Computed example of a mutant assay.
Amino acid sequence: MSIEVKNINKTYGKQNALNDVSFNIESGEIVGFLGPNGAGKSTLMKILTTFLPTTEGIAIVNGFDVVLEPKRVQKNVGYLPEHNPLYLEMYVREYLEFNANVHKIATSEIEKVISQTGLASEAHKKIHELSKGYRQRVGLANALLHDPQVLILDEPTTGLDPNQLVEIRALIKGLGGKEKGKTILLSTHIMQEVEAMCDRVIIINEGRIVLDKKLKELTESKQQIIEVEFDYRVEEVALQKINNVSKVENSKGFAYQIYCDTEKDMRGDVFDFAHDNGLKILQLHKKNPTLEKLFIELTSQK
């Protein structure tokens, strides 16, 4: 197991930032970590990188406890924080040499990460002369210097233009996976980022995990939602007796959302239900939940 999070709680005074958060990440997985602002993403990432202590619970990275063995964790983790901290007056190669000395790493590793992150053409420049995309590459190169097994990336594509987005996505995806062996936990607000790079998605809201699934399960899900409005009130339990119905929600008035687990178009079954029970259908729609809709559904304020 590459990352183990067990019943993590984090409080600031009376405020709970994380509430009983638990999940495991296998070696080589690229996991998208989603949530609205203030949900607890950055707090958890700072715990995993030893910048913050837990209030309760255990976090283990590559076999090392973040509280008991922080130095060993730091040797196994490459971290790119949301606000990429760079010394802007330093040259790219100079900055990486400085950090290589901190890590006591051979200078040969500098050329390796420069090549790996596509910085060769910019390595002679000062960091303040670089575009945002290349500054992100410098941050990634720095995170990779000590060849960590785990990469923790907090909003790595914020502020990039479309071309830079494509390049950074390809770079990150190329670092992870079973062949490369690096585990990547990637925080983002952008659903397309997850769909383009990740194997799995974890959604956190108000300090709690509200979804943890393989991306393939979500994109290939047979689930459909039938939105229907009748001319009269119907008990949810009656609608749940329709074949393949997993959940029913009364959205407002006489309108319902019927969740079905089947590839079959369920509108006909709902129409038959209405006919058999003497109901008129005022509206009837079918939709398939996407990751973005699921995110909104799980994180919107009730």
Rank of each mutant, 00 (worst) to 15 (best):
D65G: 05
K41Q: 07
G63E: 09
A39K: 11
V66H: 09
T50P: 09
D65P: 10
D65I: 13
E56C: 02
G38A: 08
I47E: 04
N62A: 15
V66P: 14
T50V: 04
I47Q: 03
D65Y: 08
T50K: 04
T54P: 04
L48T: 03
G40E: 09
P53K: 14
T54N: 08
A59T: 13
S42C: 06
I60K: 12
T55C: 07
A39P: 07
I60D: 00
K46M: 10
E56G: 00
G57R: 14
P36K: 09
T55W: 12
T49N: 06
P53E: 06
A59I: 12
F51S: 03
N37K: 13
E56V: 04
M45V: 06
T55R: 13
M45E: 03
S42V: 06
I47Y: 05
T43D: 03
L52R: 03
T54M: 06
P36E: 02
I58S: 05
A59Y: 12
L44F: 13
M45Q: 03
P36Q: 05
T43N: 07
G40D: 06
V61D: 05
V61R: 09
M45I: 11
G35R: 15
D65S: 11
F51N: 01
I58T: 15
V66I: 14
P36W: 11
F51M: 13
M45C: 03
G38F: 10
A39F: 11
I60P: 02
T54H: 03
K41N: 05
I58P: 01
F51C: 04
I47S: 00
M45P: 06
N62F: 04
M45S: 01
F64K: 13
G40Y: 13
G63I: 06
T55A: 05
L48F: 07
V67A: 10
G35K: 15
T55V: 05
F64S: 03
N62H: 15
M45Y: 04
T54Q: 10
V66N: 02
V66C: 08
A59S: 15
G57M: 09
P53I: 02
G40Q: 12
G38N: 11
V66R: 07
T55D: 02
A39V: 07
F51T: 02
G40L: 12
T55H: 11
D65H: 14
M45T: 02
T55I: 02
L48P: 04
L48Y: 06
F64V: 01
I58L: 08
I47V: 14
G40W: 13
N37E: 09
I60C: 00
L52V: 00
L48R: 00
L52Y: 14
T55M: 09
K46Y: 03
P53L: 01
D65Q: 11
K41S: 00
G38I: 10
V61W: 11
P36N: 03
T55E: 05
G35V: 09
T50N: 06
E56W: 00
T50D: 00
G35E: 13
V66E: 00
V67E: 10
A59R: 14
P36T: 02
G35F: 13
V67F: 08
G57D: 10
P36D: 02
F64N: 10
G40C: 11
P53R: 12
N62V: 01
N37F: 07
K46S: 12
T49Y: 13
N37S: 14
G35Q: 14
K41D: 02
F51Q: 12
E56Y: 08
V67I: 15
T55K: 14
T54E: 02
T54C: 13
T54K: 12
D65K: 09
I47W: 00
V66A: 08
P36V: 01
G63V: 10
